[in-house]
Design a protein around this nucleic acid. Structure first.
Lengths: 248, 248
DNA sequence: CAAATAGTGTCTTTAAGACAATATTTA
DNA sequence: TAAATATTGTCTTAAAGACACTATTTG
């Protein structure tokens, strides 16, 4: 626990709130344990007080020339080397005591990236893309990590997960965690990982084809020891402009 | 259209963004024209540049000691004299050019108030509660007003309406526009006003009673020239903590 | 009793879910 | 051919919507 000198408290009550932007980034990965796919997210280790040494969401102060979404995309690229396939504003967190030092209002975005966009690194020491020991990927439900996050970042991640589950259930964004062409079974794996329950393949197929803008391709995915599934492509539009921002 | 002196542009590029909180407030009122109920909202007339004389959402800068939701509730009370029955964060608007002078990031809340909370004033000159000619209520779909709002407030109001429609359709907040005891027909009127379409009374009744936490009272509303309808009371909880904040 | 809305019953259509059956690959 | 998943078919159940019908009040 960090101590708060009296001077800091006084300072905090009079300075204007600082504006920061942070991002919760989700990717889908094979889970060694369960054998299934599961959700992972990158965190950065703090190199300064407060919470020095603890893991936190990537983020930073809002520069005077960045729009909010640009700031989110930029610090995401800087810290993880990734370009998101989906980026949406999550919430603005502004409680008085969320930072022990000065008052900070954080506007948080959440993002989806494809598995192949995300360099696979299980430990900080083997981080590939940036070779930065202060960036690492964790399972989104890893209790030992969640329990030790800086600031209110655990609450933020849990809210982002709640939003993701809602979005995937009622919207059509699952494909953003996959490649450009995908099988219906892969989409089902996304749903199963996010909602954490198994779904009937037959019924899922029917619902998906009825509800979302999906286009058959002429290609099939061979290689498995079974009948090769057809590959599909997404051809949809987004709902409300503010509810989603596409990158590339 | 206001001119932007070069000095202001330079200034705007280097100062840190200013943080403001604004609120979109909805109430239900009788609509003289259609005879039905419809949605109304209060606006304040700007007394300073930019957009001097034009209508805008109530709001103001975020003080260092206010939490976001407190700031929203406070400026709502200051400008309209109302305490909301429902208050939820809508979105943070932060585009670089949304204010012609300096850079402003606005965190916007939306609120629901009951009809009897809202002093009935049709014109600015007859505002009752605050007797302030710079506060007035307008129909939420009044094109002549929407077309002349300050800043990006038209876009904000339209997004708030979209959220309200979604919320009322899938959630259970309609009762917050009504009194403590209400008939099922009154709830239906709320839905009809918000969704702008008529609903089958019989089917609506069944769905409502199946879906929401509603409790029968022993009272009936007499006075109409017809069988008196039973009064109900709401006994529900809210969904996700961040998705709603109850006031009193 | 006439008018008007409250409230119930019932039929049809549509979607969701369970699960059997068939199809097509690779090892 | 056995194993494995793809894909289709069918039956059941639940919800949504249309609409006829009964109930109860006021004037």
């Amino acid at each position: 626990m960090s101590q708060i000198p009296f001077a800091n408290v006084a300072e905090r009550r009079d300075q204007p709130p600082m504006l920061a932007v942070s991002t919760v980034i989700f990717a889908l990965r094979d889970d060694e344990r369960s054998g299934r796919k599961s959700l992972w997210l990158p965190l950065v280790r703090r190199t300064r007080e407060p919470f020095r040494g603890q893991w936190a969401l990537p983020g930073g102060p809002l520069g005077p020339r960045d729009s909010l979404v640009d700031a989110a995309a930029a610090n995401l690229l800087d810290t993880t080397g990734l370009i998101p396939r989906y980026l949406e504003q999550l919430y603005a967190f502004g409680d008085l005591d969320r930072s022990p030092t000065r008052r900070v209002v954080s506007i948080v975005y959440w993002a989806l990236v494809r598995e192949d966009d995300a360099p696979h690194t299980d430990t900080p020491a083997t981080s590939v893309l940036l070779d930065d020991p202060n960036v690492a990927w964790f399972r989104a439900d890893d209790e030992s990590v969640l329990a030790n996050l800086a600031f209110d970042h655990r609450q933020i991640i849990e809210y982002a997960l709640w939003r993701l589950r809602n979005k995937v259930e009622y919207g059509s964004i699952a494909h953003r965690l996959l490649g450009e062409r995908f099988t219906l079974a892969q989409v089902r794996e996304v749903y199963e990982a996010v909602l954490n329950k198994s779904l009937d393949p037959a019924n899922f197929r029917r619902q998906l084809r009825a509800a979302t803008d999906l286009e058959e391709t002429d290609e099939f995915l061979s290689g498995g020891k079974h009948r090769p599934p057809r590959l599909y492509r997404y051809t949809g539009s987004t709902s409300h402009p503010l509810e989603s921002e596409n990158i590339s």
